[in-house]
Design a binder for these strands. Sequence first.
DNA 1: AGAGCTATGACGAATATGCATAATATTGCG
DNA 2: CGCAATATTATGCATATTCGTCATAGCTCT
Lengths: 301, 301
Amino acid sequence: MNIKQLEVLRTLLATGSTVASAKAMGLSQSGVSRMLQQLESDLSITLFVRDKGRLIPTPEATVLGRDAQNVLLAIERMSGHAEDLRNGAAGPEIVRIGLPSSMWENFAPAMLIDYVRDFPGVRIETFFETTTAITKLVEERVIDLGFLRIEGETGPSIAIDTVASGESVCVVPENHPLAELPEINITHLRNVPLILIGRQRPNRMALDQAFKRAGVKQMVKIETHTNSSACSYVAHGLGVTIISSFYANLYRHLPVVHRPFVPRATQEFGLVRAAGVPLSIAAQALSGALKKQIQLSQREQ
Amino acid sequence: MNIKQLEVLRTLLATGSTVASAKAMGLSQSGVSRMLQQLESDLSITLFVRDKGRLIPTPEATVLGRDAQNVLLAIERMSGHAEDLRNGAAGPEIVRIGLPSSMWENFAPAMLIDYVRDFPGVRIETFFETTTAITKLVEERVIDLGFLRIEGETGPSIAIDTVASGESVCVVPENHPLAELPEINITHLRNVPLILIGRQRPNRMALDQAFKRAGVKQMVKIETHTNSSACSYVAHGLGVTIISSFYANLYRHLPVVHRPFVPRATQEFGLVRAAGVPLSIAAQALSGALKKQIQLSQREQ
DNA sequence: AGAGCTATGACGAATATGCATAATATTGCG
DNA sequence: CGCAATATTATGCATATTCGTCATAGCTCT
């Protein structure tokens, strides 16, 4: 496997033909054809079906095309850094932090208000991403810090500092009949429209299994991938959702209430950074600001 | 630059000598020496000082060594996925839609309220992602539909239906002095804390250039990647931001106002789907619901 | 002196690449 | 509809380039 093969894969997925790819890359069509073959051989995977003189990407090609793009982006970043080093450029210190999408509205600004005043020379870059993306961004050193829900094992390249916890709760509209209950269990949710997140992730699968064991069929109306959108759908009467109280506490301004969900489950949340990499003073301070804001957000209950 | 050169850099930084690296990599010492030279030549950067028959890494080597590691990690991930694919792993109709992160709060629920009632058997999956991610999700057939800002060229695998437009506006806190102006130009923003999005993207670079031509230095306090977080930062007094009126109209509930920004720029927004792939009835209806909600969101001005 | 290091000349094997072409499919025109 | 023109992918063949080793020189340290 070599870099040009990956570029060929990327370009083929974009253009759909070896002729167009060859033109775009300044190569011959036969070169492109060969490199595709070599890559398929190197990976022992068919990336394109040859159908009537056409190349049809396989599902594998789309998956690995994304990976190839990541490799090429990393190479571009390296080339960019080399360019910067050759040009001797340097700017203000930038501290980069990744947060769950659900935290942009009030949490992130509240966290940054004092910080920006205390560190006037520091530029902050915020990313609102999924747990998976945040983990990757930390691993790749794209960001200095991340806050995420701790799920299963992380590799040795990540250092985690547990800073918060929550329990599973059911979020319902405040005028919903289920809002009168002190706690909500699965049988309460029979025939209730559900808004669920984290499809195919371990915690979600555990929830699916619990429904199955209780003999209750889930009436899922909406799948989504952020706690924020799930709560908003609930607030608009589209159904009820099951999330961590940590996030539910961020949405107190919505006309919803949350009740402990049975079977009980707890979650842990942590601060992540690349293992073995010391944080700058500014990044440490941002870490501190984050921890402080977390305490505030969870304490006001 | 090739993959083995990057492995050489990584190994040299770990071992400190070409002899040890050659042994670790199963190469000859002279091969390692040459590959280091080639990499230095390719990058036009001295990575190691040759001092008394020893290789001393330069600061550049440590910076780029990190990048090299990122590239190699990305390659390993790709290989891992290929391995998974080689080893090999129905339900209700699911309609999947990708929206900008900025649209989860009120737009998405409002869009879905009537839809969910009209299509009770359909399950919806919502993704809130960046323009780039949405384009990819559409191309890869992960999602049926996407809504995004149209930027530059998209490939032939994407069909776009332009459904909205906007102009660049400056969003400021409602009690800010700039809120009194009928329009805001670059000189107004001298020494004003800025919250900017889309770093390194074409439109952002155009804005950076406009500041440069006007001889005004940007006082960027926060870089972020979603319109929503930028507006929230503005509402909390952390600075002002420049975004499309399309998005600003989604945040009318915040204590901010927006004014036309000069130099003027306009934006177009469209519905995207995979070209040549017919939408299901349910997906078409969701497309219709999206268009209708867009009209509502932009009309109430 | 001996051991260990880096760099380089010379050389051969392996790889990359383009030209030309075959086979097949699609499109456009009469 | 039939046929020529065009477009696509794959492959034989030849050539250029790259990759990598062996052998060795020069330097440093013990």
